[in-house]
Design a protein around this nucleic acid. Structure first.
Lengths: 363, 363
DNA sequence: CTGAAAGCGCTTACAG
DNA sequence: CTGAAAGCGCTTACAG
């Protein structure tokens, strides 16, 4: 038996096939099956015949051909650093919002892992996506200038101002202010702040909120109570542990305000290691309200950002920009959209204990 | 000033543009810039001229045109139920592996949220993707039959056998067996199992491993110690709490083996609520080793699945299938690929306490 | 109301 | 070693 090299694979039906089957032209089929405004021009009978033929042949419009003709892929890109040192539940929630709204508008969503700076970014803007959402990019202003001009961008939590890019962000300073005010309202005065990477907008704003809250309650700022760390639980663990070691015998803070839930998780671990109980001996608060804020024990008092809604909005804004670009109206209506945050109180914050000193750490 | 309706947008350079700039034909440019095997046919000088021209014009191949000509999108799809009741860190790790390998092969990755059964699936197979990875699909055998025949599929942790679909899974029974054997080796005998949804392959296999481990240690099976729950932390919390309420005054189990880390997290919460300490009063083990296994306190003893590697492999297998399909060789070489699992011991498991009874719950 | 033509930007045979 | 032609499947003007 001769093996035919060209195995006649079941070719998908095209508009011509449908047209032939229905006894009309391919354009008529196009108008009925894919056309938006021109579809009214086909008579009801013809229309029905075409629809039946399409059904019979299982016609599906070919995405590539349509994209080529329309100069539009109906696809948005999402770029993020997918894993720095920890998998990032923050992404999960933002992305969920993005997918939701994209599906609503019948847009595909393709994801890029943006591990090494902006280098690969221009390559993604070759027509395979109509626009790009940058999730929490940490770009230098320098790198931002390299963003291709023909592709619309939207950023979420960008750390620098990007020219011609809408940034969707949250009022982090207010969030930090409120959670620290809450700690103060519970009677805490000596409040340690485990901070993020200095220079990043996220860290700086949260630090500012912390300082403003102390000032508003007339609590003097003690720089020794601010320790730079990072955003991961490791960072929190290490920062807390070494602080405890270095301050053995001294007064324990009443509470710890951590720059992120991940950091707070690490703090809890370090505190538990030296036998300190949360919130009985010391209170802990986080920021972000990610998954881990609810899997710690006690669960974390933290600041919630409407990440899903921000994802929704990012898509809306991006699609709007894509549409405007096509109509030649490239003007940016707004540079930044700020979402509110909300204090979430859970069991990790209690009343301050009587005087408590740092016990020498076990190792 | 007359507003020109057709704003002359900066059209991206095409192969013709590059060809003209370099004084050659578009095909020559194609051969040099995009061609794989035919590129050798161009003389070095011409090649250089073309490459310079491309650089000067910032030429980028148009993805849609290429896809149309090649009948290949260079894009793989990933479908999953993105959020059932909890955001799913399991996805994060699998997806990371998928992105990694896809990028390696210069494939795009587009994500579909598969909320409502298989209904929308055929629509995604219209040429916009070359193949599809189903992550943890819960399909009926019935629905599986509707999978379009022209698109290659790969599943990860599928719950039913899908015709003509490779399934990438783990040896969950062995994982459960090993973690329960470990509990036994630590001296635990009365081991509660908080199980998942009955009938799902994942639950059933883990339950089977639990039973087999007990049997192998000659511990009689007590069906009262198996409680059906689900996979979320809520499920675990509720299951554990009501068990404690219903068995107030009775013997406390030595240990709890939970069907997932999420469930284990909920258990920890319920146990802590009634003042039971883990692992001093009771030990707890999970399954999956997701993010939350490390954010609980104490951290969870659990079973690790190589999710990232499974994501890597899923892409490899899918690309292979896509390639084979194009060459007409559609035969499935293997139906299932089973990855090993590994016991991960952490602080949530200790030695069993002296006799301990369930105290009446607080409410 | 309907169809023939041209074009989107790329490839793959086929000639030279 | 290089180019003219035809085609991938769809659209959008343009004729009738």
């Amino acid at each position: 038996m001769p093996s035919s090299k060209k195995a006649k694979s079941v070719r998908a039906a095209t508009l011509s096939d449908v047209g032939r089957e229905a006894g009309v032209s391919a354009m008529a089929a196009s108008a009925v099956l894919n056309g938006a405004r021109t579809s009214s021009r086909i008579s009801p009978e013809t229309r029905e015949r075409i629809e039946e033929a399409a059904l019979r042949l299982q016609y599906r419009p070919n995405a590539a051909a349509r994209a080529l003709a329309n100069r539009r892929m109906d696809t948005i890109g999402v770029a993020t650093v997918f894993e720095s040192r920890e998998l990032n539940p923050y992404f999960l929630e933002v992305f969920n919002g993005i997918l939701e709204t994209a599906a609503l508008h019948e847009q595909n969503t393709t994801v890029f892992d943006w591990q090494r700076g902006a280098a690969k970014l221009p390559g993604w803007c070759d027509g395979r996506i109509d626009g790009l959402i940058l999730i929490a990019p940490t770009l230098t202003s320098e790198a931002a200038k390299v963003l291709p001009g023909h592709t619309p961008f939207v950023a979420i939590h960008a750390n620098v101002e990007l020219p011609n890019v809408v940034n969707i962000e949250t009022d982090e300073e207010r969030g930090a202010y409120e959670v620290v005010r809450f700690l103060i309202s519970q009677g805490h005065k000596r409040i340690l702040h485990v901070s993020g990477v200095a220079g990043l907008v996220g860290s700086d704003r949260r630090l500012r909120g912390y300082k403003r809250a102390l000032a508003s309650a007339h609590i003097g700022l003690d720089n020794a109570l601010i320790i730079p760390a990072g955003f991961c639980s490791d960072d929190g663990y290490r920062a807390m542990r070494s602080w405890l070691q270095q301050h053995a015998g001294e007064l324990l803070p009443h509470a710890v305000f951590c720059v992120s839930d991940g950091v707070a998780t690490g703090c809890l671990e370090a505190l538990s290691e030296v036998g300190l109980r949360v919130p009985d001996d010391i209170s802990v608060a986080g920021f972000d309200d990610t998954l881990s804020a609810r899997t710690t024990l006690p669960q974390l008092t933290t600041v919630r950002q409407p990440l899903r809604a921000m994802g929704n909005r990012a898509v809306e804004v991006l699609l709007d920009r894509i549409h405007r670009q096509n109509t030649g109206d490239k003007q940016l209506t707004e540079k930044s959209i700020v979402f509110p945050v909300a204090l979430v109180t859970r069991a990790s914050v209690g009343a301050p204990p009587a005087i408590k000193r740092v016990v020498p750490s076990r190792r």
